[in-house]
Write a protein that binds this DNA or RNA. Structure first.
Lengths: 345, 345
DNA sequence: TGGCTTTGCTTAAACGATTAAGCTAATTAT
DNA sequence: ATAATTAGCTTAATCGTTTAAGCAAAGCCA
């Protein structure tokens, strides 16, 4: 039924030599291995004729490297991660590596299972956007001595390679921008999470407010559950805009929060930015096409992805080298949603 | 340096038996292989103690199945494909398969290269969103006897498994909806392509117009190059809205066209739907959050993805079975962008 | 002529798992 | 008591590749 693929020994048999010779020729080692010119040519001819394609499984098994990397992200259907995946894919292919992507849904258990599957498939290394609670995963990879690079999020308590944006600074810039444009009562919506990148974003917001001499009300910070974003975000926004001190601007610390938040803001018929100024993290076509284009902190996804792959490649070459920490600045893209406030007397 | 992973023979050595016994126990065949209860337990204990993880490479090499499928799509950073990828990933994992995703950028050569890499990695089968001109790829997989399912697009001239939406019908429905709501001069924007799914969409549009007794002007159909979408779409829209017979509605036959089109429509300060009614293919948050929510044809991505995987699984079981053609209907999600036209006297 | 190097190839082990076949000792049947 | 069965293991081939080591013949030098 299935026309067996041609292997080294098929060629060897037809040419009348050992598989060793064929292997040498096919991997361009004919010089070192002193293969006769005529035989080499014959081998190439037959290989071509039989349409030989090497079996990468066998090769990998033999030399312990699969030239495959595992990419664990939160969710491939989120544009931020999809774009990251795309960068990682392209950059990896340039380096001769294939990527296997898995979505963890921000769930540490899922991430753990994924990692195990990929480890068993013998990936050479990982690029990981950590879910909350995946310290165990990180430690496990360390004891297995499998190279990995943390992307977008990292654990300050562990000494690992990572590539992240400067979240505190990005948040600070977002907030300062709103302040400069006349907004004063600024809310901040984040996921409820113990993860470092989240708390950094909150810290940046706080500092910007304090530096401006404003004490951010505790009520202005809303933390919503990832698993129940749609519902909780409504409650959060209701509270923010209807409280004693209704906010005049809000920062969404994540793409998913912004999308859900904007939907509800539309429902409430709040006008952006007159009723509510907005700056968001993340990026996507949504922000361009909203009736009032949304200002956002642009994370240089291409740079993040490229650095992550390059760093991993370096680590694969030199597993013992010093861990590297790469921090990249996000850049504010200011648009209508945060334009200078008209003082309304 | 690297603490070698534990293999069957490590366990065998420690327990003092052959690797065969260990293999039987680890793969749950201890009954058939008549392994002694006490020895079996000992093996399990040691396996656990040494944290044994099977090497899937070796297993795959041995029995010729990798439990891996290749997914070739146009671009993972396009939400339509990202969502497909997500479905395929989840459904495959349920079946014990791992997915390797590659983006072809609608380029047949890239798709060809990708396929070759994946074939060499011995994927068991493929799910493919074909790029234009990839007939060669399809034929090649057929001669290699590697199972594959075409997704979203298919080649009517080849007898293959496929899962697609009924594009002619979707287009017909989109157009009829606009007609029913009072629009008459309806434009259609598509990619310039010889691919079947595109011409089907055009056909559906034409038929809906003709059935209504309207002869669609040739100028109302605009075909833009995939590689130069941003520029060409401006020219196309300019022509559509400024011609002798300016259109009063437009159908975007693809997500990417809609996004670029809407951007330009915004720039032109055309009001949707008063100046221009809109229905689009594709789906994404963009359509929800546009100032005037965009009507679109919802393709049931979850169903598409699930069917594609299930069909491939079936084909892997039974390579010789009759090819299956699965066609799924898109459903109109009607919103503001195509609301009933106010007759303006 | 005898020893040394070079050329051109083959042999065989290794990667880690699977599994048909075979072997031995104990048990059961006759 | 002897033959037949069964339980409980081992052996070894296999998947396709790589590569160190070895071997024979030819070439070179004195």
């Amino acid at each position: 039924m299935k026309p067996k693929k041609t292997s080294l020994s098929d060629i060897a048999k037809q040419v009348g030599v050992s598989t060793a010779l064929v292997s040498y020729v096919m991997s361009g080692k004919e010089k070192e291995a002193r293969v006769g010119m005529d035989v080499a040519q014959k081998i190439r001819d037959v290989a071509h004729e039989l349409n030989y394609q090497p079996n990468l499984l066998a090769k990998s098994l033999r030399d312990g490297r699969t030239h495959t990397i595992g990419l664990i992200i939160a969710d491939i259907s989120n544009p931020f991660f999809a774009n990251i995946a795309r960068e990682v894919e392209d950059e990896s292919r340039k380096n001769g590596y294939t990527v296997i992507i898995g979505s963890s849904d921000e769930n540490a258990d899922k991430a753990w299972d994924l990692m195990n599957v990929l480890v068993n498939r013998q990936v050479d290394g990982f690029i990981i956007v950590s879910a909350e609670g995946s310290e165990k995963l990180v430690l496990h990879l360390q004891t297995l001595n499998i190279p990995f690079v943390l992307l977008d999020r990292h654990f300050p308590q562990f000494e690992t390679d990572f590539v992240v944006t400067d979240n505190a600074r990005a948040s600070y810039d977002a907030c300062r921008h709103l302040l400069e444009n006349g907004y004063r009562r600024i809310g901040f919506v984040a996921y409820k999470s113990g993860m470092f990148h989240i708390s950094e974003r909150i810290r940046g917001y706080r500092e910007a407010m304090l530096d401006r001499g404003i004490n951010p009300e505790a009520d202005w910070l809303k933390e919503v559950q990832f698993e129940a974003t749609e519902i909780e975000i409504r409650t959060a926004i209701d509270a923010l805009v209807q409280g004693e001190l209704p906010i005049d601007a809000v920062i969404f610390s994540t793409y998913g929060l912004a999308v859900n938040g904007l939907k509800y803001i539309n429902e409430l018929r709040l006008r952006v930015p007159d009723d509510l100024g907005i700056v968001s993290f993340g990026q996507a076509e949504v922000f361009d096409l909203y009736y009032c284009p949304i200002s956002f902190m642009r994370q240089p996804i291409d740079v993040l992805g490229k650095h992550a792959v390059d760093l991993l490649m370096e680590r694969l070459q030199n597993p013992g080298g010093a861990r590297q920490h790469i921090t990249i600045d996000a850049r504010l893209v200011a648009r209508e949603s945060s334009r200078k406030k008209q003082e309304m007397q």
